[in-house]
Design a protein around this nucleic acid. Sequence first.
DNA 1: GATGAATGAGAGTTCATTCAT
DNA 2: TATGAATGAACTCTCATTCAT
Lengths: 200, 200, 200, 200
Amino acid sequence: MGRKSEAKKKLIETALELIWENSYHAIGVNEICKKAGVKPGSFYYFFPSKRDLALAAMECHWTEAKEEILETAFHIDIPPLERIKKLLESIYLFHAAQQKENKPVLGCAFGSFVGELGRGDETIRNRIQAIFSEIGAYFESTLRDAVSKGDLKIQEKDIPRTALALVAYYEGILLLARANNDAKVIRELIPFALNLLNIT
Amino acid sequence: MGRKSEAKKKLIETALELIWENSYHAIGVNEICKKAGVKPGSFYYFFPSKRDLALAAMECHWTEAKEEILETAFHIDIPPLERIKKLLESIYLFHAAQQKENKPVLGCAFGSFVGELGRGDETIRNRIQAIFSEIGAYFESTLRDAVSKGDLKIQEKDIPRTALALVAYYEGILLLARANNDAKVIRELIPFALNLLNIT
Amino acid sequence: MGRKSEAKKKLIETALELIWENSYHAIGVNEICKKAGVKPGSFYYFFPSKRDLALAAMECHWTEAKEEILETAFHIDIPPLERIKKLLESIYLFHAAQQKENKPVLGCAFGSFVGELGRGDETIRNRIQAIFSEIGAYFESTLRDAVSKGDLKIQEKDIPRTALALVAYYEGILLLARANNDAKVIRELIPFALNLLNIT
Amino acid sequence: MGRKSEAKKKLIETALELIWENSYHAIGVNEICKKAGVKPGSFYYFFPSKRDLALAAMECHWTEAKEEILETAFHIDIPPLERIKKLLESIYLFHAAQQKENKPVLGCAFGSFVGELGRGDETIRNRIQAIFSEIGAYFESTLRDAVSKGDLKIQEKDIPRTALALVAYYEGILLLARANNDAKVIRELIPFALNLLNIT
DNA sequence: GATGAATGAGAGTTCATTCAT
DNA sequence: TATGAATGAACTCTCATTCAT
């Protein structure tokens, strides 16, 4: 039996943290190792490449985001249209808390990631495209719930692109929050989200 | 290289092209020089650093975007609410044309740029924040025009953040277009933009 | 891994195969372990170093070559001068069979090995020098048999270096076969071997 | 105008020296740079890769070998069969001189190189195959001269493979000299070369 | 006895930048 | 003014080997 450690998990967490805060290219393998407390030579025992670590970090982030943010906000017991507000509010709270600790406002990791690496690495682009689709699926089922409860009048055929519009708005808000380094942007823009639900 | 200004301009154009398509870190100085037909040694005669070239490229892109896209879309002769649609439509046409030539769908250069470099370079972040503000200003004055023409009922105090919501949605659409590498995303999401104008 | 000797034997066989086909430096310990189905940690239980494995592989190859090729070709029942032809023919058949299976033509493992590692490791060089001497000894005794049978007129004092010339030609043929990646080279050059036996 | 130096030439010479004496993999880029007096960072300004330097070194060695060894030994004024002896003698003198200076006996650079890198890099194998062909061409024209002068009775159709046999013997001699680290091997084996010229 | 986990040293390579002219 | 040549630091990654179990 060999030795066992949490090195792999620590590498993933540290990589997510550093890459999300800075960017993929701005952070070196050694930097990640140093902060994770893993010896530089060990890195490639755990991951075949830096890119693979980044992919693993995104995957881990997505899993956690679903469990901790999406599943909570989109809970069945919450009235459908409230869920959308709740999602944005929890996102706001996360960023506001960060800001309070004098940490930078990060925005959406997937958004930044696809901006930097979407071109030149189709695997990464496709994965993030799929993640955005999954987020859209949460919105879609919420919209359907709202329709069946009579809270919303919208044709079934319009639901997918309405959901897409919500994803776009969600990503846009987080991009602006990052650009302004200010969580208040999110709070200010929350009320407009539900406006998207009526096609003019 | 002929007149100095030509080499400098070529460097700026090439840098914008390569960085927009890929990312700041993914593109090297030598690569830019090679494609621009400028000798590597000359680069630092024209620009103090790679970062300064990138800034210049953003500046140039912003100037052109204003002249060619914004000033056209937001023309005084166009009915206010039409202007917003017109902006998104011209953005769509640009990306659709790119796609038709089998080029990648790029999204918004400022959005990608701030995602990659916003943290770690406050100058860049502030500049792009300001650019987003300027875009917002176009929306703001459009909204005011719409209000005074009676096309829109919205309180003056709500105008700035309504404009901000439009910027967020605009950036979100372009981010999704880049993530999906598909201009159709833009076309599908255009109709929802005007929905944002009524606070629920 | 079952019985210890099995893992060790598998490592030796795999090392010979990979190093012969590529080169000592081109093949890593982990690669050998993986192909041999031996865990990397176990390697150093069986061998003190990679170099020692390589030496063992050479030793094993030499033992097998003697048993399977040399002892057969230089059999006492075969007319002396026929033995030399028989050796080259069996070498040709081996390489032709390899080639038929679309495998590369390998040439002589000892020749390639001494080319790569002869300088910088005197132990290895001396061992291969000794192996070449042993091959020479087969030729020597064959030449003596030929002389005593009257098949060959050559002075006793010339026998050692005539044998050496045969070894040189033998190694040269195999080097060219490897360089040309073609077993036919061997077949074409077989007839010239016996020419070496008459000093001009 | 930029700076000018002999760095490139120095790198080629040093690489040949170190790789010939040791092996391609045993010598690192930094080691070559250090001995050549070139800064490590500069290496890749001159060569795209270590492999390209090695190829250039081989090319340079072949050019020099032709000019200094082959063209001299195979001079038209020398009786044909003498030329073959002269080639081997000059090769012997080179190695004997090396040995006198307590330097190692190197053998043939191309032979060692193809042994190490022939498999896994077809470009290198093909180039060295071609070099061996060129050496063979020197032997071929010599044999034809010998035939037309009446010094040798050999059919035209047999000339190519007789030349090939001479190349094989030549490479074999040098391989043994390297294996024995002794130039005397060459001297002892020279007389047997001409024996190859009569097919039994 | 045997091994999965881990590693320090160093590999080849890239890159924004500087220098000599 | 403009540039071809050159560079030091840092990069991602490899490797023979060791360690804890």
